[in-house]
Computed example of a mutant assay.
Amino acid sequence: MAPRWKSTKATLAAPDMVKALVACAWLAAAAAEPTPAPAPPPPAHVYSSDTPIAVVAGEKVTEVSFVATHCVALQRYLEFTLNLPAAPPPLARLELADVPGYAPVETRVVAGTVLVVLRLGDGKEAPARAGEAAAQAWLARVALLVGKAADVSEPWTRQALACEVVAQLRPAMNDYWYREGRRAVPATLADILAGKAPAREAFLFWRALRPTLGAPAEQSKTLIASAQGNTVLALLAKAVPSPDEWWLVQRAELLLARAPVSLGLAESAESLDDIARFVFDVGRGDELISGRDLPPHRDLPAVKASLQGRLAGLRREILRQNPVYHNAWRTFGTWLEKFPTAKPEELAALWAQYQQERQAAEELRREIDAALTSPTPVAK
């Protein structure tokens, strides 16, 4: 027969009961205590750099140094190019900050002092914005000297000075803007003065205007007047019969007077096409003749003079050519050098080699263009 189990009730002794009550009370009190608030983060460290244009301040020392360098470059440009001393105090304050609702470069006046708030942006935007911030700081200070609003300056002055700052620190930008200017349709004078044209056009306008104004003192007066809200168009109207025609002529002369240090892909290809294109009258009127068919006519005076001139031009220009077309230029130069005395078979072989080099350069150019225009893959 299975054993029968009896239920029993456990009881706590009085001391154990007291301990249990104390533990419950302690737990309840601990749960009721409020959680202490987290400690506030330490304040961000602010770096600053004093320049002749503005006091630059920000939380990242690299950005502060970067913008301060642009301010110093502007002052050096004003001092050594236009003979302008530093503007009277107070200095502007240029703060690096991302303020919602503000433009990338925001200019205000606080307690009689110019405040420029700059959102630097990425690596592509940073140089232009830093140059613009430095330019706006100086222009606003000049306007305040005569009681004008900080943003009264003509828009083209901000663009032109910003470009001059960038050109001081990155000299290659001079050639880039001149090259782009040769390719682009000139902006109208009205668009430039209103700030609606590309910054490059304002830069070229200022470069063209300075020789027309004469001495650096006159250039400085004009820049200061524009900073204080006076239009440069009135001055131009007094100096030249037609400001619009003056601009087109001066722009063209400016661009032609400065040859680029190096040529791009398209420019090297076009230059090579021009120098290797032969049009002569060999008895049937002017006609286009291939280099392969030219040796039988090399004793003609016109052919001799033309090829001698082309060889001199090639020697002068070959160092500026794009590396993609270097071999084609070099082979064509060898053909020109040997043209007066070499055998027709040797010239034919050199011309065929030149054609191969030219075709190889075109294929490489297409590959480069395709690589530059294709979307960049996302890094994994």
Rank of each mutant, 00 (worst) to 15 (best):
G131K: 00
R93K: 14
D175Q: 04
E132T: 09
V114L: 04
A143H: 03
A172G: 15
K124D: 08
E132K: 14
L169K: 12
V99H: 13
V114Q: 03
V152K: 04
A103Y: 11
A167R: 03
A130Q: 04
Q168L: 13
V166H: 11
A135I: 02
G131C: 06
L94C: 05
L118F: 01
D175R: 08
A149S: 09
A128V: 00
E164D: 04
A134Y: 03
M173D: 06
L161E: 01
C163K: 15
V110I: 14
C163W: 12
R129P: 10
R129K: 06
A103E: 14
D98C: 15
P171L: 04
L94G: 06
E106S: 12
A97D: 13
C163S: 11
V105Y: 08
G123N: 09
A150S: 08
E125Y: 00
A149E: 11
V166M: 10
V152F: 01
T107I: 05
C163R: 14
R141T: 01
A137G: 08
L120P: 07
G112W: 01
A126W: 01
Q168N: 07
P104E: 14
G131Q: 02
E154D: 05
E95G: 14
D98M: 07
G112V: 07
V165Q: 03
T113G: 05
A167N: 04
S153T: 09
A126V: 01
G131A: 07
Y176D: 13
V165W: 00
E164N: 09
L169D: 10
D98E: 13
L145K: 10
E164G: 01
V99L: 15
G112P: 02
R119T: 12
A126L: 01
V105G: 04
S153V: 03
L161Y: 02
A126N: 00
A135K: 01
G101F: 11
R170F: 12
P155D: 05
P127D: 08
R119K: 14
A162G: 06
R93D: 09
A143C: 02
V114W: 00
E95C: 08
T107F: 07
V99Q: 13
D122K: 03
L118V: 07
L139S: 06
V109F: 04
M173T: 10
A160C: 00
Q136A: 08
P104T: 14
A137E: 12
A140D: 00
A97H: 06
K124Q: 07
A128E: 07
L115K: 04
R158N: 00
L139D: 08
E154N: 02
P171C: 01
R129M: 03
R141C: 05
K148A: 15
V109E: 13
A126R: 10
L144I: 09
G121C: 07
A172W: 12
L161G: 02
Y102I: 01
V116P: 02
E95V: 15
A97Q: 15
A143F: 03
A135P: 03
A128M: 02
E132V: 05
Y176T: 13
P100F: 02
A140G: 00
L118G: 04
W156A: 07
V146N: 09
R170K: 14
C163M: 14
W138M: 10
A140S: 09
A103P: 06
G123D: 11
Y102A: 15
